[in-house]
């Protein structure tokens, strides 16, 4: 729908940029790109195929994709209501609540892992209750998903809350005056309007989950096919086979790039 409004921009004079901004901008870009190029130069391409298709590599990649998808779904299930509550309602202690929700963003992931351990671990806050229910979280794939959700959730909440606030409430008010119930307004008006924000939030959450390392290694452990995700596998391979570590890092970079590109494309299509 933006397509039609695009030509309107031509009516304004093109704003020139101060020429000096290109220098720090280029330096900054170089700072990000150069290490990736350096990594490419380290890859032994003749062995690349064998390195990334080894049993442990495939197990790690499959586990990473599976757990990241699961945690993204969890982020949407819990994050959308959280963002809506933060953006559209008023309650005492709201700013404190927002800060607490965003806390995992600034916490070192290892701290997140320790916190999860003290909550859901065998001797944690809920450990006894979970034990009674026959649930043992530690060292399971579920623990990986929980660690990833913990660190990724704020990304979705922040993006979506921002989109909700920028979008305003006019359409929702109109729908309500026309007699739509709150659930109808939420599902038929609010959500469709912030869909792009939700999509970018979900992508960010997925990317964050894919790269999650610290909380996973602290809370879930590391076992091939069960809890050893791609970042953990890379860190372990570095110990004995730096070549394999570089090759796997490249796979992670590729997956992340594909995800980001795909969503950028789908966003411009909107």
């Amino acid at each position: 729908m933006t397509r039609s409004t695009r030509p309107g921009h031509a009516a304004y004079p093109r704003l020139g940029l101060p020429s000096w901004v290109f220098v720090p901008a280029a330096l900054g870009a170089l700072f990000v790109v150069l290490p990736l190029v350096a990594m490419l130069t380290q890859v032994e391409w003749s062995q690349f195929g064998a390195l990334v298709t080894s049993e442990s590599s495939r197990a790690a990649l499959a586990l990473s994709l599976k757990t990241s998808l699961a945690s993204t779904v969890l982020c949407i299930v819990f994050g959308v209501p959280m963002a809506v509550v933060l953006a559209r309602s008023r309650f005492p202690g709201q700013s404190v609540a927002r800060s607490l929700v965003l806390l995992p963003l600034v916490l070192p992931p290892v701290v997140g892992g320790i916190a999860l351990l003290y909550t859901f671990g065998r001797r944690g806050l809920l450990g006894h209750e979970l034990d009674v229910l026959g649930l043992q979280v530690a060292f399971s794939t579920a623990a990986v998903v929980m660690a990833q959700t913990f660190v990724a959730l704020p990304f979705l909440v922040v993006s979506l809350e921002g989109a909700l606030r920028t979008g305003g409430q006019r359409f929702e008010e109109v729908a309500a005056t026309l007699g739509a119930r709150p659930t109808t307004v939420f599902l038929r008006v609010t959500l469709p309007l912030v869909l792009p924000g939700l999509a970018s939030g979900a992508v960010l959450a997925f990317a964050r989950a894919l790269g999650e390392f610290g909380a996973t290694i602290t809370f879930a452990g590391s076992l091939q096919g069960v809890t050893r995700t791609l970042p953990l596998e890379i860190y372990l391979q570095r110990e004995t086979d730096p070549q394999a570590a570089v090759a796997l890092s490249l796979v992670l970079v590729a997956v992340a790039t594909i995800v980001i590109t795909l969503t950028r494309r789908s966003r411009t299509a909107l």
């Binding site: 729908m1 933006t2 963003l105 600034v106 916490l107 070192p108 992931p109 290892v110 660190v151 704020p154 990304f155 922040v158 993006s159 921002g162 989109a163 920028t166 979008g167 912030v194 792009p196 924000g197 999509a199 970018s200 960010l204 964050r208 390392f213 610290g214 966003r267 909107l270």
Partner: peptide, 25 residues
């Protein structure tokens, strides 16, 4: 729907920097 991109850019960049800062070994 440009605002989504703007919000994303404004919010995500510093946040990413913060999380990455926590990834040191």
């Amino acid at each position: 729907m440009r605002y989504a991109a703007r919000v994303l850019a404004a919010v995500a960049a510093p946040l990413l920097a913060l999380t990455l800062a926590g990834c040191g070994s």
